[in-house]
Design a protein around this nucleic acid. Structure first.
Length: 166
DNA sequence: TAGGCCATCTGGTCCT
DNA sequence: AGGACCAGATGGCCTA
């Protein structure tokens, strides 16, 4: 695998500092995506599908465009949140290449292995009795689940306070 | 230059 | 009805 140096595609994001520049860039993006749409709707099968979609939502082209842009923005935000979650995961799983960013697939694979390792360590320490590993039954299960939920709650709180601060 | 990884756009589907 | 989620397509950047 390779390390991703900086300078990746710097697409406009929800970054507030670059807001004025952003709208100009957005227009370029729009032109680009309209071309993209034209390309996509080139095939007859594709155009009939799009025609059906438009019949379902009979908005004016201006309205449609506006909704599309809003939808794109939401999708971008959603993907940013997903990427933040990946970053948070990278930070908690131990790995050797500290200076190089792990790819998403590497992150997921390492996380899975890490969880398995921790589980087996706990199993060893508890003489093979780890009810939670067999489901949420037994005495450990509810406690672990409670702890996990607590962690989730903390994460949510952090996330919200973060979005407020930014 | 090929291939991997990624961000973004887009339309469909599901959920609230 | 509208937003969230998803998967496919596309194109840019980077490394071997």
């Amino acid at each position: 695998m390779k390390a991703k140096a900086k300078g990746k595609k710097q697409r406009p994001t929800a970054d507030k500092e670059a807001f004025s520049e952003e709208s100009a860039t957005r227009k370029k993006e729009l032109v680009k995506c309209l071309r993209h749409t034209e390309r996509r709707s080139g095939g007859s099968k594709e155009s009939s599908r799009i025609a059906a979609a438009r019949a379902k939502h009979p908005w004016s082209s201006k309205d449609r465009l506006l909704r599309r842009l809003e939808s794109n923005e939401r999708e971008r935000q959603r993907m940013h949140k997903l990427n933040n979650a990946f970053q948070a995961l990278r930070e908690v799983i131990p790995h050797v290449r500290a200076e190089n960013k792990l790819s998403k697939i590497e992150t997921l694979t390492l996380a899975k292995n890490y969880i398995k390792s921790l589980t087996s360590i706990i199993l060893n320490m508890s003489n093979g009795h780890f009810p939670a590993a067999e489901g949420l039954g037994g005495s450990w299960g509810p406690k672990l689940y409670q702890h996990y939920q607590q962690q989730r709650g903390d994460d949510d709180h952090e996330k919200h306070s973060f979005s407020k601060n930014t």
